[in-house]
Design a protein around this nucleic acid. Structure first.
Lengths: 339, 339
DNA sequence: TTGTACGCGTTATCAC
DNA sequence: GTGATAACGCGTACAA
C-alpha cells in the first residue's frame, strides 16, 4: 500500500460513484444504511483518510491558524501558545507556529507565507513598533482575520488582547512604596512599544500619587537579558544617591541586576527591594524569590483564540473588533517583603 | 477587495491565459520579458498571493511538517521545536505543533489529524511506551516519514534522534562518586520509557565500576514535579541510613527535593550533593545552582529536522533509517561541588 | 512564446 | 437513494 486511498478507490471497489462515497462518509441522511455500512467498511479496509487539503481548497477554509511570536523558548510565549492550542484544538483547528526573532523583515515574510498557506487567521505578538505602523498595516491588509496579543499595534478593525500593563506598573510601584521604599528606579525596554510605555506610566503615576519626585536618572532603558541588567544595576549603584528599589519591566533584565547586587553584598530586600514583570518560572525558585507581575499567559492565549473564533463565526463581513484587557496580578515574594 | 486574487484574475486583466501567468510567476525561461513584467506588475497591483493549498494538492507536497510533543511549555521541548524550526523554515517548511499531554489517545488522534492534513512528515516525542508498542505501530503505518526524538520507540525503518542517556547517567553518577559521595540515591520516572531505563542503567553501572553496592531502597520512581520530589526526599531522609547524594533523572523532581532538604536545614552540597537531568533554565539561577545533564535540545531539534530532510530528499522508496545519538553533557554547578 | 486541456481529492448541484 | 458533472487554484504536458 504505497499510495494513499481516495474516495475513488472506495467507489471503484464497490462499483458506486465517488459522490455516494462522500455522502456516506459525511453522514448524509439520504443514503441507504446498507451502502453506508459498505462504504465505512471498505474505508477502514483501505485505510482511507480524508485529504484535508482538497477539502480546504474546495471550502476555502484550511482549519489552520498561524501563531507568530518573537521567540518560542520563552516561558511566556510558550504558555500563550498552549492557551491558544487548548482553545482551538477541540474545534478542529491546527496551529502553525513561527517565530520572528524580533526581526521585522522576517515577520513580514512569515505573514506572507502564512497567508499563502491559506490560514484561517493569524494570531500574533508583533515585533513592529509605533514607528513602523504603516509598514505593518501594509503587510497585513485585511483579507484574513488578525488578532494581536501582548505586543500590539492599534488599528480599526484589528482585535487585540493585552493585559493591563499600566495597572501592573502602578500596583508594583505602589507595593514598593508601601514597603517603605522612596527611591525607586525603573528598568524600561523600549518606549516605542506600547506595553513598555504603559508600565512606565504606571510607575510614574504611582510615584506622583504618593508625592515621590520622579527622577530621570533612575530610569534606564535596556535589553531584556542578564548582561544588560548587570550593567544597569552597576550604573544605578554608582549614582550619588543610589535607589532603594527597582521596578523592572522584565524579569530577565532584573535577574542580571540581582546577580550583580548579590555579588556586591547588597541585601535583597533589606537594602534594596525589587519587583519584576512576567512572572517567569525562575523568579520563584531563586534565593530570594523574586516578586513579579503575572501576565496570565494561558488566559491570554485562550482569550486570543476566543476572539478569533468569534470573528470567523460572525462570517458576515461586519467588522467585529474586540479589545480585551486582562488584569495584571502582582505576585509578592521575598525580594520585596521587608516585614 | 473582498476575494483573494487568483492567476485567473491576473490573466483576465491582461487578456492572456492563466497558464502564461503561472509561467511568468514561476520564472519559466520561455516567456517574453514584456509579459513577465506585465504579469508581475498586475500581480502586485491585485495583491495576488499564491495559494499553497492548490499547489499542495497538485504536487502532493504540503510543505508542512507536524511536530508532536508531550508539552510545549517545558523549556526542553520549546527549545527542540526552535531547533526544528530553525532548520526547516529556510527550506520553506512550516511547522504544525501539537501537544499530547502524555495522553496516548490524544496522541493517536493528533497523528490522524496531521496525516489528514497531508503533512510531509511527523517529528514526535511519543507518549507511547514499550507496553503499547504495537498500538503505536498500528497508528503510524508508514505512508509518511516519522522521526522520533527523545522519547522514542524503536522499529525498523523509523529514524530516531536521542541523546546518550546512558552516558549521561553514568557520568553524573561518577561525578558524584568523585566528590566523595558513597550513598547515592536515584530518582527514576518510568522504566517503561527507554530513556529512563538508560539513565538508570548508567547510574547502576557507575556504582558497580567503583565497587559501590547498589541499594534498592535508594531508587524511587516519581512523577516529574515538585510535590513528588518533596515526598521522595522525605522518604529518603527517613531511611535508617539516608543517602549523601541524589542523581535525579529530571530537574523538576529534584527541585522539590532541594526545597525539602533546605527546609530541613540539610546543606547542599556539604551534607548532600545533587545532580539533575535536562539543564532546565532554573537550575542555574537557584541558590545553590544545580548541576544537571544537558540534553542539547537545540541540536536535537536540528538533527531531527535534518534526518527528516534526508528522508524526503531520498525520494526513492528506499528505507533510509538513521539512529542519531547526541552526546550528553554534564554541567557541574554548586550543588555538587564540595571542593 | 503562448494557448488548451487535464488532474490533484473533495463536495455541491443538478438530474434521474 | 444514487450518478454525473462542475468547481476550488494551480502547474504542466502537449499543441500551435
Amino acid at each position: 500500500m504505497s499510495k494513499k486511498a481516495t474516495i475513488y478507490d472506495i467507489a471503484k471497489e464497490l462499483n458506486i460513484t465517488a459522490a455516494t462515497v462522500s455522502r456516506a462518509l459525511n453522514n448524509n441522511p439520504k443514503i441507504s444504511e446498507k451502502t453506508r455500512n459498505l462504504v465505512l467498511a471498505t474505508a477502514t479496509k483501505l485505510n482511507y483518510k480524508q485529504n484535508r487539503l482538497a477539502l480546504a481548497l474546495k471550502s476555502g477554509k484550511s482549519k489552520n491558524v498561524g501563531v507568530v511570536v518573537p521567540f518560542i523558548n520563552k516561558n511566556f510565549f510558550a504558555s500563550v501558545i498552549r492557551g491558544i492550542e487548548d482553545e482551538l484544538y477541540p474545534k478542529g483547528f491546527h496551529v502553525i507556529i513561527s517565530q520572528t526573532y524580533e526581526d521585522r523583515n522576517r515577520e513580514k515574510k512569515i505573514i506572507q507565507n502564512l497567508l499563502n498557506a491559506q490560514v484561517d487567521g493569524i494570531l500574533l505578538s508583533t515585533s513592529f513598533t509605533e514607528q513602523n505602523k504603516d509598514e505593518f498595516k501594509e503587510t497585513v491588509k485585511k483579507s484574513t482575520p488578525f488578532i494581536l496579543f501582548d505586543r500590539v499595534l492599534r488599528f480599526n478593525e484589528i482585535s487585540t488582547v493585552t493585559i493591563d500593563d499600566y495597572q501592573g506598573g502602578f500596583v508594583a510601584t505602589e507595593h514598593l512604596i508601601a514597603q517603605g521604599c522612596k527611591k525607586i528606579a525603573h528598568f524600561d525596554v523600549d518606549q516605542s512599544i506600547e506595553l513598555y510605555q504603559h508600565r512606565f506610566k504606571g510607575y510614574k503615576d504611582a510615584l506622583a500619587k504618593h508625592n515621590i519626585p520622579f527622577r530621570k536618572e533612575y530610569v534606564i532603558s535596556l535589553q531584556s537579558n542578564m548582561e544588560a541588567g548587570k550593567d544597569a544595576a552597576k550604573t544605578l549603584m554608582n549614582l550619588p544617591e543610589p535607589p532603594d528599589a527597582i521596578f523592572s519591566s522584565t524579569d530577565n533584565g532584573l535577574l542580571g541586576a540581582v546577580k550583580y547586587l548579590q555579588s556586591k553584598s547588597i541585601r535583597i530586600p533589606e537594602d534594596l527591594s525589587v519587583v519584576g514583570f512576567s512572572n517567569e518560572p525562575f523568579t520563584q525558585f531563586m534565593e530570594p524569590s523574586i516578586s513579579s507581575v503575572d501576565q496570565s499567559p494561558l488566559e491570554m492565549g485562550k482569550m486570543a483564540a476566543k476572539v478569533f473564533l468569534e470573528q470567523i463565526e460572525n462570517d458576515s463581513n461586519e467588522k467585529v473588533q474586540s479589545n480585551v484587557v486582562l488584569p495584571a496580578k502582582l505576585i509578592v515574594r521575598k525580594s520585596s517583603s521587608k516585614t
